[in-house]
Design a protein around this nucleic acid. Structure first.
Lengths: 343, 343
DNA sequence: CTATAAAGTTTTCGCGCGTAAATTTTAAAT
DNA sequence: ATTTAAAATTTACGCGCGAAAACTTTATAG
């Protein structure tokens, strides 16, 4: 390391014996220079640890190498995992992801999109709230910046969508529950903000009818992101009240199921599929905690790694080709049944 | 809204009838201009929605308004909450927080610090890994940028530290457990990476001795951040093996306790303090899920709001006064006992 | 060895803003 | 009305880099 710190690219050019424009090319794309000069530059970099000023770099670039990644709530383990997977995919493709969370507040979504716009990102990967989303705000920014939706779909918005095939995944778990015991009732919130929840309800109905059973849907009050709380309080009320057609409950997502399991425990109900069990409870999403609930939770695992990968590559293609796809592509991955002790 | 979009501050100056240097002052500190002109600027802003180019803004500023916030793992609800609280504190103080997670990988910590350095932040709030942290990397960046540690302390590093008083909090829960039943054994990982874990063990020992009991520490194998898994597997082994001096277990943190609860459930052990219970289990941190475990978890709640607030204000003071405090201040907040069903 | 394209160099400009100095205007106090 | 300080304007420069044009060097092939 040299005592005189390098202040800018000009100084680094002087000390490394490479012209500044060539260095500029290198930093914007190392593959755009000849291999021999690339090695010379990298050798010099190791000796003097210079890094170009990112603010000056991005000032004149019409488009940066930043990718905005916005999810509704990083505190939700599902979004944490998928957000992380998307982040990794961006890094591997040579982009700089900026992962933002709206902390469960839909109004923060539009605000975060505005913040992202100020960063002049090359593209945006958005997992929208759905109903709570400001559709106009999303459409507006989608006009300026390539934008791909994932997890939750909003029709006709963004250049593409990648998510889970709720029709398939609900079919899978309804089939399992019917085959292994009594057909399930469906437990969900009254006014789900998330479009997946709505699709899951519809898929539940269709699947039940396909098996020749009458759907039975329990819709409870509650809004926001405190799903466990809602599952515990309202689910407990459902269990106390009784009158369920069968002993089997399918929850719209694992977090509701976790609350429901907690309520069942408090009521002294034994959950599971073994002998002497009072109740079967299943969820959806394979929440990281569903392996540690009491009993462990039977659920559907979403292929979040595939979703993240596909969403990212879809965006990169749009960025690289610099043209929006003619038709908006929707890609759905299948869920997998995860059998545990609760159902 | 006017059709001709404003491209830079000069155009906005022309259209708003305010000189560009005054606008520049306004954007860097709205209170630095007279109220009447501030209102004129803001009126013009509403009409033309111009926003200065952040890259050009930060290029010449020796220090930006960015605050880097780095936590070891945003997937951990505790860090998610405290990270969010820190974020809010920064926003309220007029800074732009940049929240980064090292995803449980200590080697990412140094990398993230480097990324933050490139953003020329006004300051950094760091919750370090502890043992896994690259102390030299932290010290290096702390020389350039005001840096305040929170949650986990690393002696003599950073300008200040804010965290929880583990001595007090462990004393509180050990006292409760001893008073309400048998004295607890302490369950933890063999080589905890986090300095808090080490302090908690020491605090447990002291507290037990103060109550006239012999400490009994169970150290199990395991590393990384899969605490629930470790609690389930290794905790289950401990329970099966038997030979515990009492029926009471105090876990080093809630996530271990959650795994332990899961193991106890699988073994058919009834956890709680009521009649007919086999085992008492307590944790530490008041994890968001500890209200929904079976049974709900007795634990210690850290005052993360206070920690976040104090860490942020400590940093702001250093930034504003532009001088490191003569002595490194360590602030510890008290934990609160949260009584639930598990102990 | 020569032709030719590819890659590197030199030179120059400008992005959008921060910032400083000198000057003029405005507002508050006498 | 006068004084005076505070605030706004005018003017000018430079930050660190992207980017383009014209020129020179290097590499590869025939």
């Amino acid at each position: 390391m040299a005592p005189p710190k390098i202040r800018n690219m000009e100084e680094f050019a002087a000390i490394s014996g490479i012209s500044r424009p060539t260095l500029s090319k290198y930093f914007n794309n190392p593959d755009s220079v000849r291999k021999s000069t690339r090695l010379r530059i990298e050798a010099a970099l190791e000796k003097h640890d210079y890094r170009p000023n990112i603010y000056a770099m991005n000032q004149n670039r019409q488009t940066t190498r930043n990718i905005g990644v916005l999810v509704p709530n990083l505190a939700d383990p599902f979004f944490n995992e998928i957000g992380r997977a998307v982040e990794v995919a961006c890094i591997e493709a040579g982009y700089s992801p900026i992962l933002l969370s709206s902390h469960g507040k839909p109004e923060l979504e539009a605000e975060n999109l505005e913040s992202l716009r100020a960063l002049k990102p090359a593209g945006i990967l958005l997992a929208p709230f759905g109903r709570g989303s400001d559709r106009k705000a999303i459409d507006k920014i989608a006009k300026e910046v390539p934008l791909v939706l994932f997890d939750a779909n909003i029709s006709e918005t963004g250049a593409a969508f990648v998510g889970t095939d709720n029709l398939q995944s609900l079919g899978l778990i309804v089939e399992y529950l019917c085959r292994s015991g009594a057909p399930p009732s469906f437990f969900e919130m009254e006014t789900p903000a998330n479009p997946n929840a709505i699709k899951r309800r519809q898929a539940y109905q269709r699947s039940m009818e396909a098996h020749g059973f009458a759907p039975h849907i329990l819709q409870v009050k509650g809004s926001g992101w405190n799903f466990e709380e809602i599952g515990q309080v309202e689910g407990g009320a459902v269990l106390r009240q009784g009158g369920l057609p069968t002993n089997t409950l399918l929850c719209s997502n694992d977090r509701l199921a976790i609350g429901m399991l907690s309520a069942a425990y408090k009521l002294g109900l034994k959950v599971g599929h073994g002998p002497g069990c009072d109740l079967r409870i299943a969820g959806h999403d394979d929440h990281p905690f569903s392996r540690f609930t009491c009993p462990s939770l039977t659920t559907i695992a979403q292929d979040y790694a595939a979703i993240a990968e596909r969403a990212a590559t879809s965006l990169f293609r749009i960025i690289d080709t610099n043209e929006r796809p003619a038709t908006r592509v929707e890609t759905l991955f299948e869920g997998k049944l995860v059998l545990r002790d609760s159902a």
